[in-house]
Amino acid sequence: MPPVRVLTVEGATVTFGGRRVLDGVSFSVEAGEFVGLIGANGAGKTTLFRVVLGLLKPSAGTVRHLGRRVGYVPQKVAIEPDAPLRARDLVALGLDGERFGVRLPSRSRRERVDRMLEAVGAAAFADARVGTLSGGEQQRVLIAHALVGQPSLLVMDEPLANLDIKSGHEIVELVARLAVEQDLAVLLSAHEMNAILPHMDRVVYLAEGRAVSGTTGEVIRSDVLSELYRYPVKVLDVDGTVVVVGGHDVKVR
């Protein structure tokens, strides 16, 4: 059976004030794939996400979605600690938060929300105010919000940017597990790739508006990355774990 492409981006070009932020970007995401979108700050990751989410129309090129909807997890949300919004309220808005009109609570909706909170490990703080949760806890709730509508593609904008190393690894492992369990494709952006390396099937590398796409083995190599970053980058094997480090002083043992 040929693989199903849940997202196909072809030749996407975006121009802001005469500057090409994206220049003919093409890549695709197949069902169940874990794809990392890597690029330095200002490389166009956020713009590409806005194109993928349909918030920005590219001046040239196409974006095609196949299958169910897209779930989106923003980098962070600014919710005040005393805002009357529990974690479960935010997750319930993931079911149909964009619809007009009122909806009476039902047992099936409540059960879906509970199951989702359980799946992301947020059951313990389901009734706490979202604004009082830590960064990692909020990230879990936002993932539950994005996934409760059973999307076929989960888009995450720099999920690790505001987390410590432990919470970051936990979030990546959670997403990788949910991707397998729910037959979900993941497109996740990061400028630091060590946490996502073990789970990543494919890399889309973005530099100066252009994208290179390949399997992890093809792209995560010292020569390829050094060329992309225009800066010495080494891919090392530390006790069986691949890590990427940058800098002139790195010596490979």
């Binding site: 919004l85 938060g97 009109g101 919000h145």
Partner: peptide, 23 residues
């Protein structure tokens, strides 16, 4: 308020997410 309730709530607390959902 009843008509706008859910999109209004979502866009108040997470504007980007609401936009991505088509609000």
């Amino acid at each position: 308020v009843a008509t706008l309730y859910r999109p209004l709530l979502l866009s108040s607390v997470a504007g980007e997410v609401a936009e991505a959902r088509g609000v």
